[in-house]
Design a protein around this nucleic acid. Sequence first.
DNA 1: GTAATAGTGTCTCTTAGACACTATCTT
DNA 2: AAGATAGTGTCTAAGAGACACTATTAC
Lengths: 246, 246
Amino acid sequence: MNFSSEQAFLAQYQKSDYPSPLMTVDMAIFSVDQGQLQILLIQRSNYPQKSYWALPGGFVDLEQDQNLMACAHRKLLEKTGIDSPYLEQVASIGNAKRDPRGWSVTVLYFALINFKAYQQQIQHSEHSEWVTLEQALKLDLAFDHHDLLQQAFARLNNKTRYTALPISLMPPLFTLTELQNIYEIILGHNLEKKAFRRRMIESGVVEETDQSKIAGKRPAQLYRFALQDYDFNFPRMLEYPRHHED
Amino acid sequence: MNFSSEQAFLAQYQKSDYPSPLMTVDMAIFSVDQGQLQILLIQRSNYPQKSYWALPGGFVDLEQDQNLMACAHRKLLEKTGIDSPYLEQVASIGNAKRDPRGWSVTVLYFALINFKAYQQQIQHSEHSEWVTLEQALKLDLAFDHHDLLQQAFARLNNKTRYTALPISLMPPLFTLTELQNIYEIILGHNLEKKAFRRRMIESGVVEETDQSKIAGKRPAQLYRFALQDYDFNFPRMLEYPRHHED
DNA sequence: GTAATAGTGTCTCTTAGACACTATCTT
DNA sequence: AAGATAGTGTCTAAGAGACACTATTAC
């Protein structure tokens, strides 16, 4: 066909000329509680895959959503009550088989939130629950969510080696020992105390406050995050354990 | 509605219950020629944005394409004749405004190919042309392709600091000086010769061959890529220039 | 020989890891 | 005082940057 102008073309354009896949977003929301990395799952209240555990997510709404990120925020709020500040896109997964309703594409996001700060905030439009990552990966999750969860964790684990991202799991004031614990939980191995503290302090990602935390033994200096961007890149990566400790 | 089973639900499910966005893939294909980073553009032969330069790409075909990656490969082959081995997903961009036909999502991929090896292979289903990245970013590209191109280059540039990815731009045998030139072109600044060679050789990403290249002056040792995965991670990043040289 | 490009020797600098040490609190 | 947790001193190791040096070719 020939058109004399962009306007003429658009006037006749039928969106149904090209069938579109189903379009969803899914969120892997990580937190740390009880010394364990936790992931927020919802139990599906509708078909398909009714009553299976799944990552929170849902369909893009062409009316409501300005863009994909806005959709992710909206869905997260609807499904869990969480208004997360930081969502990072991990990847998009699309194929003919992942959803029984048809060719489907999902955009996967992840977020890190402080457990306590969001504990009240969580509401249950569907039944939601924090599950340790370990447990979650053993469950028979809906659709390909097992795979999505692995991808999201791989990203978190990797970025923990060279960014300050895990600080977004912390409350506003925290001790360096607490922060180190979070790093160790995500990485799955222990870190050297001196090296960890030096790295955090000398890079300027954290700064001392005038407060300290008294919780039993010797009081600990409280620090705060000192940058804008959790995606701060350290010049070197943390190494993997050299001998088999874990 | 209530359903007694997954089957019952799926039997009545209407895909049109939820309108889907337009779904496309776009590819940023980089190469190096004449000492410059080149990007492959096509000139659109149809509306919308007819005659604008754009990244090669197109609609996902739910019949033909098994998954998003397969779609990217198919579209690249159709539009340019290139059968690229390595495509990496960069990000997905979706919003209501990027395409005048309606709410649209694109999955952006990038690839690095050796200029000479693909020069014959390129066919012109639409008019395609290698353009230096610098020039391309000055053009008024179709849709939001200027932004997509910047995102793809940012990824390439960043990964060049800690992976062996640029080796995928090289022919099977290459000299270390040639490889260093490619790195410098992508990074936009010079690298220290000794440090560069040490890094490549001692990490084991390249290995000596028994051949050397005679091209005028002193012959140079030819190396080959020695690993499976261009995504090999060096333990440290290349630094940015310390003083203002460039 | 000179020019040009390939390649090396070796010093410094930065930052991670190791690990023993000191400090400050509760009981 | 003992126990526990916070925090430091200081050595080593790895790998990047700087830069002067040598090597091998064409002419």
